[in-house]
Simulated scan of single mutants.
Amino acid sequence: MSVNGAGTERRNHTTDGADESCWDEDWDDEYGPVVKATGHQIKLWREAAGLTQTELGDAIGYSLGMVSAVERAKRLPHPEFLAKADEALGAGGKLVALSKDVEKARYPKKVRDLAKLEAQAVELGAYANHNMHGLLQTEEYTRALFEMRRPPYKEEEVERQVAARMARQEILKRRSAPLLTFVQEEVTLRRPLGGRMVLRRQLEHLLEVGQLRNVEIQVMPTNREDHAGMGGQLQLLKLSKGTAVGHWEGQLSSRLISDPREVQILEMRYGIIRAQALTPRESLAFIEKVLGET
């Protein structure tokens, strides 16, 4: 990541599509010590119990390689691993207690960063032009996006990315839920990513989410002759501190925009995009129509 003179952070990843430039594990940040401490604790409890890595693996149903990788902080232990190890080593719940922080570390850092911003948001607005916005995606739709990624992800990375995206949707259920507005291009309602049934369930999900009192979904018809969104998809977050930031995505990169002048431009464009789109009521009726045709 780098920051230019205009207050724009450049990151080598995207979030709502299925792309990123790096395949390596990326928990070497604030969660790095947690992952390392968890592996060290498992090793200490194992040695105190007089067990080898092979013996612990046999006792909890995991391979020697997995136990070794967890202890060396090369693999993240699943909650089931920690629960079984806790019981086998007589840790009295001390290993299980690490599950929550370890689970957070499982999500890619880029997703955690965006989720932190979304957690601070009192208002979020987004325009999506080639797929459903990540906060609106069903799990099936999300999995289809990651499975069609080229070069392909390994299966475990697909599951990791899917779980991370679904975790971000906690914002929809938050007690003090922010105002969420979305403008979706008509083509995103018709493109059958993952197959026709996946699209049908996605459209049904849009109709359900669109009924939430804090959510407004609008559709930008393809036949519009004037369109303020030709610069591509965008996202705006108004934070609880009174500041605002923008987020833009492209091939293999994304930008977190904090310069007030650039944020103002994005706010102007998004306002015009919303004005050019169908109203929320018209949009839900349009989605129902497309669902009937799918």
Rank of each mutant, 00 (worst) to 15 (best):
residue 118 E to T: 12
residue 114 L to P: 00
residue 119 A to Y: 05
residue 112 R to A: 00
residue 111 V to K: 06
residue 101 D to I: 04
residue 96 V to Q: 12
residue 115 A to D: 13
residue 109 K to S: 10
residue 106 R to G: 05
residue 101 D to G: 03
residue 116 K to T: 14
residue 119 A to L: 13
residue 111 V to D: 07
residue 96 V to W: 11
residue 108 P to D: 01
residue 112 R to T: 05
residue 100 K to W: 12
residue 118 E to A: 08
residue 104 K to L: 14
residue 103 E to N: 09
residue 111 V to N: 06
residue 119 A to R: 09
residue 95 L to K: 03
residue 102 V to E: 04
residue 122 V to Y: 02
residue 102 V to W: 04
residue 121 A to P: 01
residue 98 L to K: 10
residue 119 A to F: 03
residue 112 R to N: 00
residue 104 K to C: 06
residue 102 V to N: 03
residue 113 D to K: 11
residue 109 K to T: 15
residue 115 A to N: 14
residue 123 E to M: 08
residue 115 A to H: 06
residue 106 R to W: 05
residue 99 S to P: 03
residue 102 V to M: 11
residue 123 E to P: 06
residue 99 S to R: 08
residue 117 L to V: 15
residue 103 E to I: 04
residue 117 L to Y: 13
residue 103 E to F: 07
residue 111 V to Q: 14
residue 121 A to W: 05
residue 99 S to F: 07
residue 107 Y to M: 10
residue 106 R to I: 05
residue 114 L to V: 12
residue 113 D to G: 06
residue 104 K to V: 09
residue 116 K to Q: 15
residue 117 L to C: 09
residue 101 D to F: 08
residue 122 V to R: 03
residue 106 R to A: 05
residue 109 K to W: 07
residue 100 K to Q: 13
residue 95 L to W: 02
residue 95 L to N: 01
residue 94 K to Y: 08
residue 105 A to T: 01
residue 114 L to C: 04
residue 112 R to E: 00
residue 104 K to G: 03
residue 102 V to K: 12
residue 122 V to I: 14
residue 101 D to R: 15
residue 100 K to E: 15
residue 103 E to L: 10
residue 104 K to H: 11
residue 112 R to S: 00
residue 116 K to G: 06
residue 110 K to E: 12
residue 111 V to A: 10
residue 122 V to P: 03
residue 122 V to H: 02
residue 120 Q to W: 09
residue 98 L to Q: 13
residue 95 L to F: 02
residue 113 D to F: 05
residue 121 A to S: 10
residue 110 K to D: 07
residue 122 V to G: 05
residue 123 E to A: 11
residue 98 L to S: 03
residue 100 K to N: 11
residue 107 Y to I: 10
residue 119 A to V: 14
residue 99 S to Q: 10
residue 118 E to H: 09
residue 111 V to G: 06
residue 95 L to A: 04
residue 97 A to N: 08
residue 114 L to N: 02
residue 109 K to A: 14
residue 120 Q to V: 10
residue 97 A to L: 08
residue 103 E to H: 04
residue 105 A to I: 04
residue 110 K to F: 07
residue 111 V to W: 04
residue 99 S to G: 06
residue 116 K to P: 02
residue 122 V to S: 03
residue 117 L to M: 08
residue 109 K to V: 10
residue 96 V to G: 02
residue 115 A to L: 07
residue 113 D to S: 08
residue 121 A to H: 03
residue 119 A to Q: 12
residue 98 L to E: 09
residue 96 V to L: 14
residue 95 L to H: 01
residue 123 E to W: 15
residue 113 D to P: 01
residue 117 L to K: 08
residue 106 R to L: 03
residue 119 A to S: 15
residue 99 S to N: 11
residue 100 K to D: 13
residue 112 R to I: 02
residue 111 V to E: 13
residue 104 K to W: 13
residue 110 K to Q: 12
residue 123 E to D: 11
residue 99 S to T: 14
residue 107 Y to K: 08
residue 96 V to R: 15
residue 100 K to Y: 10
residue 106 R to K: 07
residue 121 A to R: 03
residue 100 K to T: 13
residue 113 D to R: 08
residue 120 Q to Y: 07
residue 113 D to H: 07
residue 98 L to A: 05
residue 115 A to S: 12
residue 98 L to T: 08
residue 107 Y to P: 01
residue 108 P to I: 00
residue 104 K to Q: 13
residue 110 K to N: 13
residue 99 S to E: 14
residue 101 D to N: 10
residue 113 D to C: 01
